[in-house]
């Protein structure tokens, strides 16, 4: 029998992968991929907890997270395309205007 801990550890591993991606990537598109990984990792955690406690709230939360991910991608990609049109690159290093 697979315990809850297994799922949580899996969540942790996937989340860490996502974090590594966030730190490592400088290509904006790849950065988006990494955030998707973070969101999915959390989704697994929610679904697992929901199952092991017999409470549906976790699934509902996962559902809303998916909705948010979808909207984020739509807006984010739009902005990305705009930026690419303007600068011809989607590298993070091209975004240096917010210098303190």
């Amino acid at each position: 029998m697979i315990g809850l801990e297994h799922y949580l550890v899996l969540t942790g591993i996937l989340f860490s992968i996502g974090i590594v991606g966030v730190i490592r990537r400088t290509n904006l598109l790849m950065l988006f991929f990494s955030t998707e990984i973070l969101l999915n990792a959390v989704n697994i955690g929610f679904a697992a907890v929901s199952k092991y406690y017999g409470d549906l709230n976790g699934q509902i939360f996962s559902f809303f997270i998916i909705a948010i991910a979808a909207s984020e991608v739509a807006v984010g990609l739009g902005l990305l395309v705009l930026w690419y049109k303007k600068e011809g690159t989607i590298d993070l290093t091209s975004l240096q205007m917010m210098k303190g």
Binding site: L92, L95, M97, M98
Partner: peptide, 8 residues
């Protein structure tokens, strides 16, 4: 200096 402007 933290605010280098680099998003990364």
């Amino acid at each position: 200096k933290m605010q280098s402007g680099n998003l990364s």
